[in-house]
């Protein structure tokens, strides 16, 4: 399932990433389930547009967050793989 940094993550059909005004939180709504990302997860998902590669997402986050790129890369790729396995993303 792992797509590596060349993968082009995109939300599966029927999956919506949006800000829920009632919960005051970003949510990922998929058929019959709801994903609630924390702040870091939200920052990753905001960059998923089907055009940006996983590597480009990592570069963007590495430029903004105070952590080594390889640490961010490990977490981002694991998160994308996990969401793909759970049916929210395609890689």
């Amino acid at each position: 399932m792992s797509g590596g940094e060349d993968a082009l993550p995109r939300f599966r059909r029927g999956v919506r990433f949006r800000f829920d005004e009632i919960r005051q939180q970003w949510t990922l709504l998929a058929p019959e389930k709801l994903f609630l990302p924390d702040e870091t997860g939200t920052e990753i998902l905001k960059l998923v547009d089907g055009e940006r590669s996983a590597g480009a997402i990592i570069d963007d986050l590495a430029a903004r967050f105070d952590a080594p790129r390889d640490v961010i890369a490990t977490d981002v790729l694991a998160t994308l793989d996990d969401l793909a396995a759970r049916g929210a993303l395609t890689l």
């Binding site: 609630l36 990302p37 870091t40 997860g41 105070d66 998160t79």
Partner: peptide
């Protein structure tokens, strides 16, 4: 802006 390992909770509707 410190990096924290992402956590995504899944809830069955």
């Amino acid at each position: 802006m410190s990096w924290k390992t992402p956590k995504i909770v899944e809830i069955a509707l």
